[in-house]
Amino acid sequence: MLTSFFKHKLMPAITFHNIEDVLPVTNALQEGGLDVMEITFRTGIAAKAIELVRKNFPEMIVGAGTLLNSEQLAIAVQAGASFGVAPGLNEKVIGTAAEKNFPFIPGIITASELEKALTLGCRLVKIFPCNLSGGIGLIRALQSPYAHTGIQFIPMGGINLSNLHEYTALNIVLAAGGSWIASEELIGQKGFDIITENVRCSIAITR
């Protein structure tokens, strides 16, 4: 199921501080041609933001990001999120996601964490913080011994328009994620047209 969400190989991570920004940002993403987004649980309005998107843009696939515990995951499921994402590997959260049949992407950064993810049944993992930990070189190093397992990666951290192609050109990378499409600064400035253009540029790069 998860692999079908990322046809453009992109997963924008959106952090909302004001509820009035939710619909304009979602519209800007959609206008650019994107139908998937991750709303991070870094602010108290994340669940409400997911509910708003699901109600007003039912065709948008909404993930819940920065899920650090089982309680947050349960809230995300209740809000209508289609999948969850975490920066790290938490066995309890992975177990809760499995119990709820909720598609979940844990975060890893080492070979040992990757092997643990595989043991727990995860075949799609977020690599974070990717660019600070070796970037494209790290992915290539992990790809050699683990590609045969069917694992796929979503690198996040330090990815932008200038290096996006390096990541998405690798077959083991299902999608690249980050805030460059709709940063907190852009949202604060109401730069919705720029967000739309960032989506279009990103899609052009990943084709």
Rank of each mutant, 00 (worst) to 15 (best):
T15E: 14
N18K: 14
L118S: 02
I194K: 15
G65A: 03
L142T: 07
I19Y: 14
F16G: 01
V93N: 03
I45D: 07
T206A: 09
P24W: 00
L120F: 02
S133P: 01
K9D: 02
A13E: 11
I109H: 05
M60R: 07
N101A: 05
S183F: 03
G134D: 06
R140D: 11
A47G: 07
L124N: 08
G157M: 06
N27F: 02
I61R: 11
G188R: 06
S202M: 09
I45N: 02
L10S: 00
P24V: 05
S133M: 14
T40G: 01
G188A: 08
V36S: 01
H165T: 13
G137D: 10
K48D: 14
I127Q: 01
H17C: 05
R54M: 11
A76I: 02
R200T: 14
I14L: 06
R54C: 14
A74G: 07
V173K: 05
I94T: 02
A47W: 00
P24R: 13
N27Y: 07
V199E: 09
A117P: 05
Q189Y: 13
A117S: 12
A176N: 08
L67H: 05
G121F: 07
R54I: 11
T119H: 13
V85P: 06
E99S: 11
P129L: 04
F153T: 08
T40I: 07
I195G: 01
E59S: 15
N198M: 12
E185F: 09
F128W: 13
F104L: 09
F192P: 00
N163G: 06
F57N: 06
G95C: 06
R200K: 15
S183M: 02
L34E: 00
A46I: 10
H148Y: 08
R200W: 05
R42Q: 11
A182N: 04
A86S: 15
Q189C: 08
L170P: 10
L142Q: 05
V22I: 09
N160W: 07
A86C: 08
H17D: 15
K55N: 12
Y167V: 04
F128Y: 13
K55D: 12
D35C: 02
S133R: 12
M156Q: 13
I154P: 01
E99K: 14
T96N: 07
L23P: 11
V62G: 01
E51V: 09
R140H: 12
R123L: 11
A111H: 10
A79Y: 12
T26G: 02
I154C: 03
I195N: 00
H8A: 11
A147N: 15
T168W: 00
K55R: 14
I181Q: 07
T66F: 00
L2F: 11
C201T: 10
A47C: 09
F5E: 07
L23W: 10
K100Q: 06
K116T: 13
I94Y: 08
G177K: 03
M37D: 03
K7F: 05
T96I: 00
G84A: 10
A28L: 10
G137H: 14
A175D: 05
S112M: 05
I94W: 12
T206S: 09
I94S: 08
A97D: 04
A147S: 15
L2E: 04
N131Y: 09
D35Q: 06
I50P: 00
I203T: 04
L142I: 03
I108A: 02
I94E: 03
L10I: 11
L73A: 10
P145C: 14
T43N: 01
S183T: 00
L114R: 05
N90W: 04
S4V: 08
P24S: 04
E166P: 03
L120Q: 09
C130A: 12
